[in-house]
Design a protein around this nucleic acid. Structure first.
Lengths: 210, 210
DNA sequence: AGGTGTTCCTAACACAGTTAGGAGAATGCG
DNA sequence: CGCATTCTCCTAACTGTGTTAGGAACACCT
C-alpha cells in the first residue's frame, strides 16, 4: 500500500495539462494559421489565464518546439505503420515511401509548415526536438540506399522533387490534387534516371526471387 | 517658362522617399530576416518617426506588397536580360531558364521568401503586385510550350523540381552549392522524361537548321 | 503675401509575449 | 490529523509591436 510515491499523480496530471495545451495549440493553428496562434487564445481554450501557460512551457517557442517534435514523431510512427511490409520491388517501394510522405505533409498545412518550412519568425527546434526529424531522414536515406541507389545526389534530388511537389500542391491548389496526381509520374521519371529497375511483370518476378 | 506644373517636383520627391523606405526595408530584411523587420527600425534608418511612414504606405503589409512587386519586376527584367538570346537547342534553353531562376532565388533569401513562400503571417499580395508574378509564370509556360512540351503536367513537374531544389539549397546548405550543382542533372532527368531532344552534336546541328 | 495641401511630428491605443509576486490547493511528513 | 512544502494558477504590470488622432511646419501655387 505504501512505497508508491504519489509523484506519479502529479507528473501524470502535469502531462495531462501539457496535452491539453498542445491540443489547443494545434486546433488554433489549424483554425487561424500556424503563425497566428496566440497565447491568449490557447489559454482561453484551455480555461486559463495566459501567464499560467508559463507553468508548463518556458515560452511560446517552447510550445512550437513541442509541436515540432510531436509532428515528426507522428510521421515516424505513421511511416512505420504504412511502410511496414515495404513493397518488394524497389520502384514500388520508392513510390510508396514518397506517397506516404507526400500525403502526410499535404494532410495538414500547419503541421507541414512547422515540420518542413521555416515559417515561424524566431523559432528553431532544439536538438532533442530535431532528433526525430534527422532519424526519419537518415532512415529514408538508408532505405533508398538499400534499394540500390548508391549516389547520394540521387537521394537529394528525390527529396527535392517530393518537397517541391508538396509545396506547389499546398501553395497553388490546397485541397485539390493537381500536383498530388503528378507524384507517381515524377517519381517514375526520377527512378528511370537513377537506374531503378522498371516495374515490368518480368522484373517483378525476378525481384521476388530474392 | 510657365505651364509646367510643379506637380512633378512633389511627386518626384514623394517617389524618392518611397524608394528610401523600401531600400531601408530591404536592407533590414537582409540583416534581421524578412519577417523580423520592424517599422521602428525602418523609420530610424530613413531618419523618421515610425508613424511618419504612414504618409507613404498604408500599413506594414503595404510595404511588403511593394517589395513583392519589386522583387518580381526585378526578376522579370533579369530574366529578360539573361535569356534574351535564348539558346537554340531546347534542352540547353530549358537548362538556362532553370539556372537563371535558381540563381536569382538563391542569391537573396529574404527576397525568395517573399516571392515564393508564404512566410509572412498576414501578408498576401494585392492583384496588381501579383501581376508580374503571373506574367513571369505564364511567360515561362509559353516558353516551355514553344520548346515542344505539350503536356502542362510536364511544366508543373519542371516548376516543382526547380522550386524543390531551391528550397533545399536555402534550407540545408545556405551559401553552399550542394543542391545548386544538382540542378543540371535534375533538369536533364526531367528533359529525358519529357521528350526533349538529347543534346548531341547531331541534334544540335539539326536544330540549327530551323 | 496668403491660402492650401503635403509631410512630418508627438501622444496615445490595442494587442502581443513575458515577468514578478502572491494566493490557494494539492502533496508529503511528523 | 496538523503542519510545511511544493505546485499551479492568478492578477498586475512591463516591453515592444503596428497603428490612429490630431496638430505643427514646410513647400507650393496663385
Amino acid at each position: 500500500m505504501l512505497g508508491t510515491p504519489s509523484r506519479n499523480r502529479i507528473a501524470e496530471r502535469r502531462e495531462g495539462v501539457r496535452r491539453e495545451i498542445l491540443d489547443a495549440a494545434w486546433s488554433q493553428a489549424r483554425e487561424v494559421g500556424l503563425a497566428n496562434i496566440t497565447l491568449r487564445d490557447i489559454a482561453r481554450e484551455v480555461g486559463m489565464q495566459p501567464p499560467s501557460l508559463y507553468s508548463h512551457f518556458d515560452s511560446k517557442n517552447a510550445i512550437y518546439n513541442a509541436m515540432y517534435a510531436e509532428a515528426w514523431l507522428a510521421y515516424e510512427s505513421c511511416s512505420a505503420a504504412e511502410l511496414d511490409p515495404l513493397p518488394e520491388h524497389p520502384r514500388v517501394a520508392i513510390q510508396r515511401i514518397a506517397r506516404v510522405f507526400f500525403d502526410f505533409a499535404v494532410a495538414d498545412l500547419a503541421r507541414h509548415q512547422l515540420m518542413n518550412q521555416r515559417t515561424i519568425p524566431g523559432f528553431e527546434p532544439t536538438a532533442d526536438a530535431y532528433a526525430p526529424a534527422v532519424r526519419v531522414l537518415e532512415h529514408g536515406a538508408a532505405l533508398v540506399r538499400s534499394l540500390g541507389i548508391t549516389d547520394p545526389a540521387d537521394f537529394d534530388i528525390w527529396v527535392s522533387l517530393i518537397g517541391g511537389l508538396i509545396d506547389q500542391q499546398l501553395a497553388n491548389d490546397p485541397g485539390g490534387d493537381r500536383f498530388s496526381r503528378l507524384l507517381e509520374r515524377a517519381i517514375d521519371m526520377w527512378a528511370d534516371a537513377a537506374g531503378v529497375p522498371k516495374h515490368s511483370p518480368a522484373a517483378t518476378r525476378a525481384a521476388r526471387k530474392n
